[in-house]
Nucleic acid binder design. Sequence first.
DNA 1: TACTTCACTGCAAAGGTTTGCACAAAGATC
DNA 2: GATCTTTGTGCAAACCTTTGCAGTGAAGTA
Lengths: 380, 380
Amino acid sequence: MPVTIRDVARASGVHISTVSRTFSAPHLVNPETRVRVLACAEDLGYRPNRAARALITGRTHNIGLIIADIANPFFPPLIKAAESQARHRDYHVFVADTNEDAAAEEELVHALAKQVDGVLLCSPRMSNSLIEQLSREVPLVVVNRQLAGLPCVLMDVGQGARSAIEHLARLGHREIALLAGPRGSWTSRELRRAAGAAARAAGAELTVLGPNPPTESGGLAQAEQVRRAGVTAVLAYNDLMAIGLLEGLDALGVRVPQEISVVGIDDITLSRLTRPKLTTVATPTAAAGRTAVDMLLQQDTELPRTGRGSGAAAAVGARRTTAQVMLQTELVIRDSTAPGPYAGRDAPGATAAGPGPHRRADPGTPTVSPVTSSPPNAKE
Amino acid sequence: MPVTIRDVARASGVHISTVSRTFSAPHLVNPETRVRVLACAEDLGYRPNRAARALITGRTHNIGLIIADIANPFFPPLIKAAESQARHRDYHVFVADTNEDAAAEEELVHALAKQVDGVLLCSPRMSNSLIEQLSREVPLVVVNRQLAGLPCVLMDVGQGARSAIEHLARLGHREIALLAGPRGSWTSRELRRAAGAAARAAGAELTVLGPNPPTESGGLAQAEQVRRAGVTAVLAYNDLMAIGLLEGLDALGVRVPQEISVVGIDDITLSRLTRPKLTTVATPTAAAGRTAVDMLLQQDTELPRTGRGSGAAAAVGARRTTAQVMLQTELVIRDSTAPGPYAGRDAPGATAAGPGPHRRADPGTPTVSPVTSSPPNAKE
DNA sequence: TACTTCACTGCAAAGGTTTGCACAAAGATC
DNA sequence: GATCTTTGTGCAAACCTTTGCAGTGAAGTA
């Protein structure tokens, strides 16, 4: 019933190897033969059997995408971009959800390892050492985590945090809270570091609350703490938490931004729809998905795998591309931030902070900030 | 480098077939042998090669999931549930995004067909006849589309629309608009039918606006039309459009729900976070994902595929399970609906409408309504 | 004892494709 | 006209696993 290369060979009067080459190395076959074979293949509705192909080439033309929580609106644009990019290169994407669980991450990498050419690990929660160990089992590209020796796609949340804190300081806030993210998150650590430094530089005091689950309820649950902390501004780990906080503060009768300013991170679609509209740091999630796929696929096409020849070369060339790409973030000022108690007075440590963030036209297109890449790869 | 069944066989001193059986038919091998083999396998880190397995068994243990738009918050819970359910049964899922494009749907089914044991087609936009044709190529389960002879998982939006219209009529609305969904959507057609009938029965007039893209901008773009139509209540194809409409009406200075009541469909997380909170019809998306996977996998385990024996039986048993499951929806009343101009007066066609919809505790758990199944399958 | 039954294991073919090598014919070079 | 390249094709092995069949020895039955 299923039509194979053999059927096509018979129909077009050539050997199966010629049919094979027609698809996998067209330049090796006579143009006339090629069109004839292609016509027959089309006619019969032939589609190469990827399992058979994978069996011999050692590459599946599949990649795995491991995500903490698909329902978190931060991820779908990334998934979408990754899937689309992969498809253009004739790869398919397995998507797996870990429910923010580090153990599930490991298990999934194992389960997928034999079935994909590489795995995209997005915002992993597991330890660095475990990631390194897993990377020996299957090519890995890590998103939102910096790891020496591994290809990473990072979003410059440090810069984002700096912009946010400077923005708040300029507005006259000196008591700022940071709603930290989940334990094990590189982004959260980075955020904490950068926000702390920026606050110090601006003469503001930073109170860290958390860790928290990266969801609205995580933010909502901290509303009480935020009020009690006596701060006038809050930077949240992500928009979801910021939105939860908005809800929580509203329930407590605290007005945003009049009494407390709130800044989120990610610029999910949703953040344009809250009341007040959320000031946030836009992260280039789609670009991250695309870039990560590109890096993985480049690695995949470089490294030979199981091919019968080229054994020596493969053994020698155990080098890996370990490019690390940092994508820029951008502060988007909307309506959830307003002047604070020290408005007008110069902040103690205020410096000329370069060009301020620009106010982005609001219902405008969500332009993803362009990609900037760090040195594309180190020595092998 | 990669460890195969052969290495395990050598290590444990048995033939490869015994190793194979240890994994795929454990009851056929002596318990002592089994533990020895398993120990060796564990030791060597053996993982069966799914491509090789697929090549001979004809089943890949993968399924495809074709989605109109991953970034539409309606879908992630479905994807998540499907993925999780599949994983429990040792299946992996390919996720593909069509960008609401019917042509992309077809192409993706083809691309996936040879690589999966079945495909879940979610809210397809293509024609019924094309779906039927594709179903001859690969087992299909269709979500949100009713098709004779094919297994379908449906959400009872008809009932949902009825509840919504009755709710509005009871509140005293007689001029109601329906924001239709995209062309090609079964749900939209169903909605239109049911809402029309319910409106007639309640003595209300229904104005249909659309088709529209199922996004916030789709809703936003209709705000002007809605105002001009002179209606006092709107039922939108989904929450996203309802939320867009909320924005649009706000921009026009129309107050919701005082001047116009708005009802959405889906009960996405977001709908609890708008101001006012959205009255909406909750659809059991997660249950749909689970159910669809179950139906597909049941079909998959029933039908033999390429297995060398059982040829005759397979030929005879070309019957397919064509169960159609209808999942219940539920009206969730929040703050975007309020009494209309005819409040207090009996609606002309008002009937005793059975138990009214209950008001759900708001920040409560988003309980997914339980599954009700229609006659599980017709004759073959 | 001779036979059947049973539980377990080995043998070998099969699944669809890729690819190194060999071979043939045609063209190029001297 | 002989030799060398080049171009196109065929041959057959290899990838890893599953599975029908056959074979072994032990236990049960007559």
